[in-house]
Design a protein around this nucleic acid. Structure first.
Length: 203
DNA sequence: AATCTTCATCCATCCAGTCC
DNA sequence: GGACTGGATGGATGAAGATT
């Protein structure tokens, strides 16, 4: 298959494009870790034959099976779906080309960048993803509120994050999912710089 | 309306065959 | 010989129709 051509798209087969896409992602993750199909099958507690069919898009693996694979590969379940959606309507943001925002005088040093969005109009996206970089202790900001749901993933640093009356001590790799209408925000920046991804869904 | 039966479909395993 | 593929097969599940 030529580079940049998505598996299952335009290959003439027209069969199980989503299953093929998932299979390609599973295989890519597996080979990246230097595992054989048998290794991954063993780790996921499925048969080697099943592994073969999943990787070749022959079957639609159940969610339980995909979850087992994601755990064995130590990747989020959504990794297997990456790149399949919105093939003809993708938004590519090269490194350094993000849209930077300043959040007002009181938060002058605290910056966040819009990495991408999806929706029928840029003015009313259904999903937005931001990269926050907080490099001063004073960058912690008052709680925010908004519609929809938010997912937060801490990349670097350490902080306490407040959601309503709850406080969460977060380190790299920790994540939070919560309703946007609950007042939330970084409360104390413990180890700088703090960098985290924030995805907001307005659905 | 609730229960039972039948049938189709899906997901998974087994295992023989193929490929490198 | 190890890795992988794909056909055959079985168990689980759900939909649809029949019966009470």
């Amino acid at each position: 298959m030529p580079p940049h051509q998505y598996p299952g798209s335009g290959n003439g087969s027209g069969e199980n494009p989503l299953e093929l896409a998932i299979g390609i992602q599973v295989r890519a993750c597996r080979t990246r870790l230097g595992m054989t199909a048998a290794d991954l099958a063993r780790a996921s507690r499925i048969s080697v034959g099943m592994m073969s069919k999943i990787e070749n898009g022959v079957i639609s693996a159940s969610l339980a099976t995909l979850q087992a694979l994601s755990r064995a590969l130590d990747v989020p379940l959504t990794t297997f779906l990456r790149g399949r959606e919105y093939e003809g309507n993708a938004i590519f943001v090269p490194a350094g080309a993000e849209t930077a925002f300043e959040m007002g005088e009181a938060r002058a040093a605290q910056r966040y960048k819009l990495l991408g969005y999806f929706g029928t109009h840029a003015s009313s996206p259904t999903v937005e993803t931001y990269l926050f970089t907080l490099d001063k202790e004073t960058d912690a900001f008052p709680p925010l509120e908004h519609f929809g749901m938010e997912f937060l993933y801490l990349l670097e640093g350490e902080m306490t994050y407040r959601i309503g009356s709850m406080r969460y001590l977060m380190g790299p790799g920790d994540s939070l999912s919560f309703a946007g209408h609950t007042p939330h925000g970084p409360e104390q920046l413990i180890r700088l710089p703090v960098r985290f991804l924030s995805t907001i869904s307005y659905l």
